[in-house]
Amino acid sequence: MDVKIYDNERVDALFANQVKIIQSDEVFAFSLDAVLLANFTNPAKKKQQKIVDLCAGNGAVGLFLTAKTSAKIYEVEIQKRLANMAQRSVILNDLDQQVEVINADLNDILTYLPKDSIDTITCNPPYFTNQPDSKKNPNHYLALARHELTVTLAQTIEQSANLLKMNGKVCFVHRPERLLEMGALMQKNRLAPKRIQLVYPKAGREANMVLVEAIKDGKPGGVRFLEPLVVYGPDGNYTPAIRKMIYG
């Protein structure tokens, strides 16, 4: 099917599963955190099950998950232009029977999807709190993607809990400095963290990303810390683990 690609856009691919994504540096381009989140997530797999990707951006995480599951996937994105890019990427990959884009504020998501109805949720939310004196990107699209201007971590966790079935799972990628805050918010919303993986840019450096999986109404305790991921080797190239995620 023909899909319109505009002058300021390009089509990139995740070679590991041949998924094509429409990107634009003007508004947003998926980065490694999307690949890491999709790789970390063990999604519900059956056709009758349902997956939601919150803060979907241009749809990368949900599209990457299609290689792992037959479940219906809903991509939720507040920015109209990004949602449009995601929708065109869905068509570009001939996935419109499996993936649906919802252009909405995730705080209104229960208007679109029933409470307690989702098996797996993924979320790559804005990482930085909206401090009045914090420096923000002058590009409004990028500022929204990086700072909590329209949604907070508390809201993404609350809405995840609202959407999930009992024993449903949610997976987040975020910054390590917010891990304890995330854990407290999850506990408040009946979510029990079960798997955590730290991501390091290079050996000998501090972690700059964390992946967290939690289960709704899961038993407390039993948290597993997975083997750390290191992104770049001493030669400046991707480590074998990261290269496999990207190139297969």
Rank of each mutant, 00 (worst) to 15 (best):
V3Y: 11
K4Y: 13
I5Y: 12
Y6C: 04
D12K: 06
D12P: 09
L14K: 03
F15C: 10
Q18L: 11
I21N: 07
S24A: 07
F28N: 05
L32P: 10
L36E: 05
A38E: 13
F40E: 07
N42Q: 15
Q48F: 11
V52F: 05
G57E: 08
N58R: 02
N58D: 05
G59E: 04
L63F: 04
F64M: 15
F64K: 09
F64P: 12
A67T: 11
K68P: 02
I73Q: 11
E75F: 02
V76H: 09
Q79A: 04
K80L: 06
A83Q: 06
N84K: 14
N84W: 09
M85K: 09
M85V: 07
V90K: 05
N93R: 11
N93T: 09
D94L: 08
L95N: 12
D96C: 07
Q97C: 03
Q97A: 14
E100S: 14
E100L: 10
D108F: 05
Y112I: 06
Y112E: 08
P114F: 10
S117C: 09
I118R: 06
I121A: 05
I121V: 14
C123D: 06
P125E: 09
N130S: 11
H140P: 15
A143K: 06
A143F: 08
A143H: 05
A143N: 06
L144E: 12
L144H: 14
L144W: 06
A145Q: 07
R146Y: 09
H147V: 06
H147C: 03
E148Q: 15
L149V: 13
V151K: 05
L153N: 00
A154L: 00
T156K: 02
I157G: 00
I157N: 01
S160T: 01
K169Y: 03
K169P: 01
F172P: 00
L179Y: 01
M182G: 01
M186L: 04
Q187C: 01
R190G: 01
A192S: 15
Q197E: 12
K202L: 02
K202E: 09
A203K: 13
G204F: 04
G204T: 03
R205K: 15
E206D: 14
N208Y: 00
M209N: 13
M209P: 02
V210D: 00
L211C: 13
E213W: 11
A214M: 06
D217L: 08
D217M: 11
G218F: 04
K219H: 08
P220E: 11
V223I: 15
E227A: 13
V231E: 01
Y232V: 02
P234E: 14
D235Y: 04
D235C: 03
G236N: 03
Y238R: 02
P240H: 08
A241Y: 08
R243P: 01
R243K: 15
